[in-house]
Amino acid sequence: MNELQQTAKDLLEKNAVAVVIGYGMGSEPSLRRAVFVRKPDQAPQLIFDESCRQNLAFYVLKPEVKALGKAAVVARTPTLRTLLQLATENQITDESVVALPVGNGSVQPLTNFAAIEQYLANVPRGFTAQEQQELAAIKSKTLADRWAFWKSELSRCIKCYACRAACPMCYCSKCIVEVNQPQWVPVPSDMLGNLEWNVIRAMHLAGRCISCGSCADACPAHIRIDLLNQLLATEAMQQFGAEPGLSVRKDYALATFKPTDKEEFIR
Protein backbone atom coordinates (compact mmCIF):
# COMPACT_ATOMS: atom_id res chain seq x y z
CA MET A 1 0.00 0.00 0.00
CA ASN A 2 1.19 3.51 -0.76
CA GLU A 3 1.13 6.36 1.69
CA LEU A 4 -2.26 7.68 0.58
CA GLN A 5 -3.89 4.29 0.95
CA GLN A 6 -2.20 3.70 4.30
CA THR A 7 -3.29 7.12 5.60
CA ALA A 8 -6.86 6.48 4.50
CA LYS A 9 -6.82 3.05 6.08
CA ASP A 10 -5.53 4.46 9.37
CA LEU A 11 -8.19 7.16 9.47
CA LEU A 12 -10.95 4.63 8.86
CA GLU A 13 -9.52 2.14 11.33
CA LYS A 14 -9.31 4.78 14.03
CA ASN A 15 -12.84 5.87 13.15
CA ALA A 16 -11.45 9.37 12.68
CA VAL A 17 -13.60 9.64 9.55
CA ALA A 18 -16.56 7.69 8.20
CA VAL A 19 -15.65 7.97 4.56
CA VAL A 20 -12.64 8.81 2.43
CA ILE A 21 -13.54 10.54 -0.83
CA GLY A 22 -10.86 9.90 -3.38
CA TYR A 23 -10.02 8.89 -6.92
CA GLY A 24 -10.34 5.36 -8.24
CA MET A 25 -10.00 3.63 -11.58
CA GLY A 26 -12.74 4.43 -14.11
CA SER A 27 -14.39 2.21 -16.68
CA GLU A 28 -11.44 2.62 -19.02
CA PRO A 29 -7.74 2.68 -18.12
CA SER A 30 -7.47 6.39 -18.96
CA LEU A 31 -10.48 7.37 -16.87
CA ARG A 32 -10.73 8.12 -13.18
CA ARG A 33 -13.79 8.40 -11.03
CA ALA A 34 -14.64 9.40 -7.50
CA VAL A 35 -14.67 6.57 -4.98
CA PHE A 36 -16.12 6.61 -1.51
CA VAL A 37 -14.07 4.34 0.74
CA ARG A 38 -15.87 3.44 3.94
CA LYS A 39 -14.02 0.30 5.07
CA PRO A 40 -10.30 0.10 5.84
CA ASP A 41 -9.80 -2.88 3.56
CA GLN A 42 -11.13 -0.88 0.60
CA ALA A 43 -8.33 1.64 0.92
CA PRO A 44 -6.28 0.08 -1.90
CA GLN A 45 -8.98 1.32 -4.32
CA LEU A 46 -7.54 4.80 -3.86
CA ILE A 47 -5.18 6.02 -6.51
CA PHE A 48 -3.63 9.33 -7.37
CA ASP A 49 -1.91 10.32 -10.59
CA GLU A 50 -1.88 13.06 -13.21
CA SER A 51 -5.26 11.97 -14.56
CA CYS A 52 -7.00 12.67 -11.26
CA ARG A 53 -8.26 16.15 -12.00
CA GLN A 54 -11.78 16.36 -10.63
CA ASN A 55 -12.32 18.70 -7.70
CA LEU A 56 -13.69 16.35 -5.07
CA ALA A 57 -14.54 19.11 -2.59
CA PHE A 58 -18.08 19.47 -3.78
CA TYR A 59 -18.96 15.99 -2.59
CA VAL A 60 -18.64 17.10 1.02
CA LEU A 61 -21.68 19.35 0.53
CA LYS A 62 -23.89 16.54 -0.74
CA PRO A 63 -26.51 15.48 1.80
CA GLU A 64 -25.84 11.83 0.96
CA VAL A 65 -22.19 12.23 1.89
CA LYS A 66 -22.94 14.37 4.92
CA ALA A 67 -25.25 11.62 6.17
CA LEU A 68 -22.32 9.20 6.32
CA GLY A 69 -20.49 11.30 8.91
CA LYS A 70 -17.15 13.03 8.88
CA ALA A 71 -15.37 12.79 5.53
CA ALA A 72 -11.76 12.85 4.44
CA VAL A 73 -11.13 14.27 0.98
CA VAL A 74 -8.19 13.49 -1.27
CA ALA A 75 -7.26 17.02 -2.14
CA ARG A 76 -5.13 18.62 -4.79
CA THR A 77 -4.29 22.26 -4.18
CA PRO A 78 -7.48 23.60 -5.83
CA THR A 79 -9.52 21.24 -3.67
CA LEU A 80 -7.85 22.56 -0.52
CA ARG A 81 -8.62 26.10 -1.57
CA THR A 82 -12.18 25.10 -2.31
CA LEU A 83 -12.55 23.77 1.22
CA LEU A 84 -11.40 27.07 2.68
CA GLN A 85 -13.64 29.06 0.38
CA LEU A 86 -16.59 26.88 1.33
CA ALA A 87 -15.72 27.53 4.95
CA THR A 88 -15.59 31.27 4.28
CA GLU A 89 -19.07 30.99 2.84
CA ASN A 90 -20.40 29.15 5.89
CA GLN A 91 -20.96 25.92 3.99
CA ILE A 92 -18.70 23.69 6.08
CA THR A 93 -17.58 24.00 9.67
CA ASP A 94 -14.13 23.62 11.09
CA GLU A 95 -13.07 20.08 11.86
CA SER A 96 -15.98 18.66 9.87
CA VAL A 97 -13.64 17.64 7.07
CA VAL A 98 -10.18 16.11 6.88
CA ALA A 99 -8.12 16.95 3.84
CA LEU A 100 -5.53 14.54 2.46
CA PRO A 101 -3.21 16.74 0.42
CA VAL A 102 -1.76 14.99 -2.62
CA GLY A 103 0.63 15.84 -5.39
CA ASN A 104 2.99 17.77 -3.20
CA GLY A 105 5.05 15.34 -1.15
CA SER A 106 3.76 13.52 1.87
CA VAL A 107 0.08 12.89 2.60
CA GLN A 108 -0.26 14.34 6.08
CA PRO A 109 -3.94 14.68 7.04
CA LEU A 110 -5.00 18.30 7.55
CA THR A 111 -7.66 18.14 10.23
CA ASN A 112 -8.73 21.75 10.53
CA PHE A 113 -8.85 24.95 8.51
CA ALA A 114 -5.85 26.47 10.23
CA ALA A 115 -3.78 23.48 9.09
CA ILE A 116 -5.04 23.89 5.52
CA GLU A 117 -4.24 27.60 5.62
CA GLN A 118 -0.76 26.84 6.80
CA TYR A 119 -0.25 24.17 4.16
CA LEU A 120 -1.44 26.47 1.38
CA ALA A 121 0.86 29.27 2.49
CA ASN A 122 3.77 27.26 1.10
CA VAL A 123 2.19 26.01 -2.09
CA PRO A 124 2.85 27.84 -5.35
CA ARG A 125 -0.28 29.39 -6.87
CA GLY A 126 -1.37 31.48 -9.81
CA PHE A 127 -2.04 30.59 -13.40
CA THR A 128 0.49 28.65 -15.45
CA ALA A 129 2.30 30.32 -18.32
CA GLN A 130 0.20 28.30 -20.74
CA GLU A 131 -3.04 29.40 -19.10
CA GLN A 132 -1.93 33.02 -19.19
CA GLN A 133 -1.03 32.68 -22.84
CA GLU A 134 -4.44 31.29 -23.70
CA LEU A 135 -6.09 34.23 -22.02
CA ALA A 136 -3.78 36.72 -23.70
CA ALA A 137 -4.46 35.13 -27.08
CA ILE A 138 -8.16 35.91 -26.81
CA LYS A 139 -7.58 39.35 -25.37
CA SER A 140 -5.36 40.21 -28.33
CA LYS A 141 -8.12 39.49 -30.83
CA THR A 142 -10.16 42.38 -32.19
CA LEU A 143 -13.50 43.12 -30.62
CA ALA A 144 -15.33 41.62 -33.59
CA ASP A 145 -13.16 38.51 -33.46
CA ARG A 146 -13.76 38.07 -29.74
CA TRP A 147 -17.49 38.32 -30.31
CA ALA A 148 -17.22 35.83 -33.16
CA PHE A 149 -15.11 33.50 -31.03
CA TRP A 150 -17.55 33.43 -28.14
CA LYS A 151 -20.53 33.30 -30.43
CA SER A 152 -19.10 30.19 -31.97
CA GLU A 153 -18.07 28.72 -28.61
CA LEU A 154 -21.39 29.42 -26.94
CA SER A 155 -23.41 28.26 -29.91
CA ARG A 156 -22.37 24.75 -28.87
CA CYS A 157 -23.73 25.18 -25.35
CA ILE A 158 -26.70 22.92 -24.77
CA LYS A 159 -27.43 24.33 -21.30
CA CYS A 160 -26.88 20.94 -19.70
CA TYR A 161 -25.38 22.70 -16.65
CA ALA A 162 -22.63 20.09 -16.33
CA CYS A 163 -20.33 23.04 -15.54
CA ARG A 164 -22.55 23.93 -12.63
CA ALA A 165 -22.80 20.33 -11.46
CA ALA A 166 -19.01 19.95 -11.45
CA CYS A 167 -18.34 23.27 -9.73
CA PRO A 168 -18.00 23.06 -5.96
CA MET A 169 -18.81 26.76 -5.61
CA CYS A 170 -22.13 26.26 -7.45
CA TYR A 171 -23.86 24.94 -4.36
CA CYS A 172 -26.94 27.18 -4.41
CA SER A 173 -30.08 25.20 -3.72
CA LYS A 174 -31.87 27.29 -6.32
CA CYS A 175 -29.61 28.50 -9.07
CA ILE A 176 -30.37 31.79 -10.78
CA VAL A 177 -31.35 29.89 -13.95
CA GLU A 178 -34.14 28.27 -11.99
CA VAL A 179 -35.44 31.56 -10.63
CA ASN A 180 -38.48 32.31 -12.76
CA GLN A 181 -40.03 35.32 -11.08
CA PRO A 182 -38.69 37.02 -13.02
CA GLN A 183 -37.15 34.61 -15.49
CA TRP A 184 -33.66 36.10 -15.60
CA VAL A 185 -32.17 33.57 -17.99
CA PRO A 186 -34.23 32.37 -20.94
CA VAL A 187 -34.83 28.65 -20.77
CA PRO A 188 -33.94 27.62 -24.33
CA SER A 189 -30.33 27.10 -25.25
CA ASP A 190 -30.34 29.88 -27.77
CA MET A 191 -27.64 32.46 -28.18
CA LEU A 192 -29.17 34.87 -25.65
CA GLY A 193 -29.72 32.24 -23.01
CA ASN A 194 -26.27 30.76 -23.48
CA LEU A 195 -24.59 34.13 -23.34
CA GLU A 196 -26.51 35.28 -20.30
CA TRP A 197 -25.98 32.02 -18.45
CA ASN A 198 -22.25 32.01 -18.98
CA VAL A 199 -21.80 35.69 -18.21
CA ILE A 200 -23.89 35.41 -15.06
CA ARG A 201 -22.05 32.29 -13.97
CA ALA A 202 -18.70 34.00 -14.44
CA MET A 203 -19.85 37.03 -12.46
CA HIS A 204 -21.25 34.90 -9.69
CA LEU A 205 -17.91 33.15 -9.40
CA ALA A 206 -15.81 36.29 -9.62
CA GLY A 207 -13.77 36.65 -6.46
CA ARG A 208 -14.87 33.15 -5.36
CA CYS A 209 -13.60 30.84 -8.10
CA ILE A 210 -10.48 28.97 -7.09
CA SER A 211 -9.70 28.06 -10.71
CA CYS A 212 -9.81 24.28 -10.44
CA GLY A 213 -10.91 23.93 -14.06
CA SER A 214 -13.59 21.35 -13.28
CA CYS A 215 -16.22 23.29 -15.23
CA ALA A 216 -14.32 23.14 -18.50
CA ASP A 217 -13.38 19.49 -17.90
CA ALA A 218 -17.06 18.70 -17.43
CA CYS A 219 -18.34 20.58 -20.46
CA PRO A 220 -19.45 18.00 -23.06
CA ALA A 221 -19.22 20.65 -25.77
CA HIS A 222 -15.65 21.51 -24.77
CA ILE A 223 -16.41 25.19 -24.38
CA ARG A 224 -13.58 27.06 -22.68
CA ILE A 225 -15.81 28.56 -20.00
CA ASP A 226 -12.90 28.36 -17.59
CA LEU A 227 -11.35 31.25 -19.50
CA LEU A 228 -14.19 33.53 -18.38
CA ASN A 229 -13.47 32.56 -14.79
CA GLN A 230 -9.76 32.90 -15.32
CA LEU A 231 -10.21 36.40 -16.71
CA LEU A 232 -12.20 37.55 -13.69
CA ALA A 233 -9.94 35.75 -11.24
CA THR A 234 -6.96 37.54 -12.78
CA GLU A 235 -8.75 40.88 -12.70
CA ALA A 236 -9.95 40.40 -9.12
CA MET A 237 -6.41 39.51 -8.12
CA GLN A 238 -4.83 42.46 -9.92
CA GLN A 239 -7.46 45.04 -9.00
CA PHE A 240 -8.43 43.96 -5.51
CA GLY A 241 -5.75 41.52 -4.43
CA ALA A 242 -8.43 38.83 -4.22
CA GLU A 243 -7.11 35.32 -3.70
CA PRO A 244 -10.07 33.23 -2.65
CA GLY A 245 -9.61 30.04 -0.74
CA LEU A 246 -6.37 30.86 1.00
CA SER A 247 -7.93 31.63 4.35
CA VAL A 248 -11.29 31.52 6.08
CA ARG A 249 -11.27 35.27 6.49
CA LYS A 250 -14.39 36.97 5.17
CA ASP A 251 -12.81 39.01 2.43
CA TYR A 252 -15.00 38.50 -0.62
CA ALA A 253 -13.74 41.11 -3.04
CA LEU A 254 -17.21 42.15 -4.20
CA ALA A 255 -18.58 42.65 -0.70
CA THR A 256 -15.94 45.16 0.22
CA PHE A 257 -14.25 48.12 -1.42
CA LYS A 258 -11.49 50.62 -1.23
CA PRO A 259 -12.27 54.30 -1.72
CA THR A 260 -9.22 54.31 -3.98
CA ASP A 261 -10.47 51.58 -6.34
CA LYS A 262 -9.74 52.37 -9.94
CA GLU A 263 -12.37 54.37 -11.74
CA GLU A 264 -10.91 55.86 -14.86
CA PHE A 265 -13.72 54.21 -16.81
CA ILE A 266 -16.28 56.34 -14.98
CA ARG A 267 -16.85 59.82 -16.30
Binding site: E89, K174, K250
Partner: peptide, 15 residues
Protein backbone atom coordinates in the same frame (compact mmCIF):
# COMPACT_ATOMS: atom_id res chain seq x y z
CA UNK B 1 -37.60 21.34 2.40
CA UNK B 2 -35.61 24.44 1.46
CA UNK B 3 -37.54 27.01 3.53
CA UNK B 4 -35.56 29.74 1.80
CA UNK B 5 -33.46 29.98 -1.32
CA UNK B 6 -30.87 31.72 0.79
CA UNK B 7 -27.94 29.34 1.10
CA UNK B 8 -26.49 31.17 4.05
CA UNK B 9 -23.20 32.16 2.39
CA UNK B 10 -23.45 35.54 4.17
CA UNK B 11 -21.31 37.24 1.55
CA UNK B 12 -23.94 39.98 1.69
CA UNK B 13 -23.11 40.59 5.34
CA UNK B 14 -20.02 42.68 4.78
CA UNK B 15 -21.54 44.50 1.79
Amino acid sequence: PEFSNCVGCFLCESA
